[in-house]
């Protein structure tokens, strides 16, 4: 196909004759590149998309949220035991058991139990919680998370499930 003067894109400064014929070649070229970039863009968006994109692995090698912590009698009466790797406190008062999160509700530091003061204290920004996990000082907005704790019917041992939180009043009486 021969290019004629009328096919050329005219960009004269006088502004005359500024037009060009939109040929089949133009259309196919535009459609081809358009599809190409649409497809590439689609893949890119899908690649970086949230929840299922590249940066969201489907499997993570982390500790199971549900785990056995031992027999009730292995925790002394009126004690607070920190299970460091599991990030929970097992609080026992008489026959009552609670599983409290170690994670401060302010910004996620690990709180410590102070035996002398009988409270939980956060080393990062000074939040304080009573023995039952309720916040009373510092920037913490909420009580420490309370996790579901049950007794395994077969072994009679305490089982904590960190994927399930329960209300602050909840306690397991053995």
């Amino acid at each position: 196909m021969e290019t004629t003067d009328t096919d050329r894109c005219n960009t004269s400064e006088t502004g005359e004759n500024i037009w060009f014929t939109f040929t089949r070649r133009h259309f196919l070229s535009l459609a081809g590149w358009g599809l190409f970039f649409a497809a590439m863009g689609g893949y890119l968006v899908r690649f970086f998309w949230f929840k299922h994109g590249f940066f969201y692995p489907k499997v993570v090698f982390e500790l199971s949220p549900r785990f056995t912590v031992g027999e009730p009698k292995s925790f002394p009466e009126n004690s607070v035991t920190k299970l460091k790797s599991r990030m929970v406190f097992i609080v026992r008062d008489g026959d009552s058991f609670k599983a409290l999160s170690v994670v401060c509700t302010h910004l996620g530091c690990a709180v410590e139990f102070s035996k002398e003061k009988n409270i939980f204290e956060c080393p990062c920004h000074g939040s304080k919680y009573y023995r039952n996990g309720v916040n009373f000082a510092g920037p913490a907005p909420r009580p420490l998370a309370h996790f579901e704790m049950v007794i395994d019917p077969y072994s009679g041992r305490l089982v904590v499930d960190k994927s399930k939180t329960v209300s602050v009043e909840t306690e397991l009486v053995v």
């Binding site: 949230f50 929840k51 299922h52 994109g53 940066f55 969201y56 692995p57 993570v60 982390e62 990030m87």
Partner: peptide, 19 residues
């Protein structure tokens, strides 16, 4: 609204896990 949990939020994508 988007069904975001600790194992699929923006924090998860930055640290590659929940902790």
């Amino acid at each position: 609204l988007l069904g975001i949990t600790a194992s699929n939020d923006i924090r998860f994508s930055l640290v590659g896990g929940t902790t």
